[in-house]
């Protein structure tokens, strides 16, 4: 966190309780709309060397200023520099989906995204789906439908489902299977995961979001 500087007034996640941390992130998300407008058209970074470059990342509605090495992936930066450990490390080769985040609302593998390439884009992680201590509708749906066993792949599954439902609020089972096909579950909870996505569509519709 040495180079991290957050220009919102939220507390540094380091050293706060997990619950307090989610609360802080959730509170930040409420400011997303205004902060998002500040970002487009931002100057493109052009690092002249492999030295760390100062960038601003827009994560869950908060502007995070930090130094980034060109070789750092978005996954590494989210977890190791911003403390957002909801995004999981899986295969680190773009095959399993555990690191799925939304970039401008679209599901992407954070392990195959350079952090520098994410500058100027709106990044949403699992933490960004929380509203304070309340789970978002997709997270709730996974809980209700028991859409997991060990839970390791779940953050990625939730983010893939969130992205799918933003693009297609009422998917058919076949569309769900296709939309979720980039996320592996070693426990094989697929049937429940698909049910959870159906439930999430209902919950999102009911909540109007």
């Amino acid at each position: 966190m040495a180079h991290d500087h957050d220009d919102s007034d939220a507390e540094d996640p380091k050293g706060v309780s997990r619950r307090g941390f989610f609360t802080a992130v959730g509170a930040g998300a409420i400011g997303a709309a205004t902060l998002a407008q500040a970002q487009p058209g931002a100057p493109t970074p052009a690092a002249p060397s492999d030295d760390p470059t100062k960038v601003t990342l827009l994560v869950n509605g908060r502007r995070r200023r930090l130094l980034v090495e060109p070789r750092w992936t978005l996954l590494f930066v989210l977890r190791e520099k911003l403390g957002l450990t909801g995004t999981k490390v899986g295969c680190e080769r773009g095959e399993c989906g555990a690191c799925t985040v939304l970039v401008d609302g679209v599901p992407c593998y954070a392990c195959m995204t350079l952090a520098l390439e994410a500058v100027g884009h709106e990044i949403t992680t699992l933490e960004g789906l929380m509203r304070g201590e309340e789970l978002g509708p997709v997270q709730q749906a996974f809980l209700i439908e028991d859409g997991l066993q060990c839970g390791y792949c779940t953050p990625g599954q939730v983010m893939a489902a969130e992205g799918l439902l933003r693009a297609n609020p009422a998917p058919t089972l076949e569309e769900i299977r296709l939309g979720m096909s980039g996320n592996l579950c070693r426990c094989g909870a697929y049937a429940h995961i698909f049910k959870a996505v159906e439930k999430a569509a209902e919950l999102k519709k009911a909540a109007g979001r």
Partner: peptide, 11 residues
């Protein structure tokens, strides 16, 4: 970790 490299993003 990926080995270090320089990065440019021409306009």
């Amino acid at each position: 970790m990926i080995p270090a490299f320089n990065y440019v993003r021409p306009a």
